[in-house]
């Protein structure tokens, strides 16, 4: 059986995602791929799955599923519409 590695990362929330998560930064334990992180955080905070947002890993927008490593910084960026 393949065991999934769990790592500790920093999550930054922006816009309405701060309301969903309850704070603007959290330390978070996650499996070590972006897709597994997304699945886990949307399971922990179900409202996230109902909104649009992009994820940046260490200040670069993630284009596809990728590995994440210990102490990575993941930002959850929703669109803003106000002008």
């Amino acid at each position: 059986m393949i065991t999934q590695t769990h790592i500790n990362i920093h999550v930054l929330a922006f816009g309405q995602i701060v309301d969903i998560i309850g704070q603007s930064t959290i330390n978070y334990q996650t499996p070590n791929t972006l897709s597994a992180f997304k699945k886990r955080i949307e399971n922990d905070y179900p409202l996230l799955s109902k909104i649009s947002y992009r994820i940046a890993i260490n200040k670069k927008l993630a284009l596809e599923d990728t590995a994440i490593i210990e102490a990575d910084e993941l930002a959850l960026l929703p669109p803003f519409s106000g002008g």
């Binding site: 309405q16 909104i51 649009s52 992009r54 927008l61 929703p78 669109p79 803003f80 519409s81 106000g82 002008g83």
Partner: peptide, 24 residues
């Protein structure tokens, strides 16, 4: 940034969320 065509219904606007006047 956002490839999927977002609709205004999917995101809250200033009228709904409010905005501090100095921010814009």
């Amino acid at each position: 940034l956002f490839a999927d065509k977002l609709s205004n219904e999917s995101v809250l606007n200033c009228a709904e969320t409010g905005v501090l006047g100095v921010l814009p």
